[in-house]
Amino acid sequence: MRAAATNTPLLEVEDLQVHFYTRAGVVQGARGVSFQVGYGETLGIVGESGSGKSVSVQAVMGLIHTPGRIEGGDIRYKGRSLLDAAGRNYVRRVRGKEISMIFQDPMTSLNPVFTVGTQITEVLRHHLGMDRAAARRRAVELLDLVEINAPTKRLKQYPHELSGGMRQRVMIAIGLACEPELLIADEPTTALDVTIQAQILELLADLQRRLRLSVILITHDLGVVAELCHRVAVMYAGRIVEVGAADTLFADPIHPYTQGLLNATPRLDAVSERMVSIDGVPPDLIDPPRGCAFSPRCAHARKGCAQRQALTPLSDGRHVCCWCAVNDHITGATPQ
């Protein structure tokens, strides 16, 4: 991979802080989120609603609008900041072209009054300055790429004439129109049926390999991550609590929240009478706890958990944000 050659990752997010000003108080959507995405790498960001996973990538795409505001940190794409004053022009060139995004609900992101063809060629003509005929040829290629059969026929159809899975394929085609380096997929299969989800995940994995894309996959489903991602970041209450290579993170989760999440995910290959739950509810992000945000729900919480500990690096490129678990992991004890 190219990452080794340049040594700068494709995308770096550093200590990102996003606040939302609501009448109930200031909601801290992202509280110091840092992650990197390398060339040709798929990073999965897993978290529950309100964990800050979507907020983080929306900040990358410049989609934080009132009442939200980026209050701190930096986002660098190929080493250049997207947030400083000089970055504004750069951002306009990069977003939507080199970095593109697909959303959860393809019905709301497609315009119902235009045909699929119009919407794809629009992107091509706007960003790449193609003429009508060239854009049309490319649109057919793109639909072919996302494995839509009879692409020339589909170009004339309207979004409501397509099924949910087909619409998401069209969205992916639009996302790939400008040959981006980074594709951000925000819960791309959540609104779809399981058998259709399987098709779309297969397609995404295939495209990532063939086009050597970097992908950020946002999801709440650990199963989806296991399928697609090289590295995984687990978010909780506006922070990343654990990040590492997918295989090792799933085989040996260190943070108690990651462990809890894995246990709570129902598995078809294991039988148990009762589902394992994590007691309690996620904290209020208007007034988040000073220390570890998970400690009120954590079975292993100790006195020291009131003080926060930064993401601690471990040997295998893993970072964990829990001092108890890290200590136990280094000394070899399992946290029980």
Partner: peptide, 14 residues
């Protein structure tokens, strides 16, 4: 709309 209005006021103040 009410939330947006409030947020505009807050960011202006900030």
């Amino acid at each position: 709309e009410r939330e947006k209005q409030f947020a505009r006021h807050m960011t202006r103040r900030l």
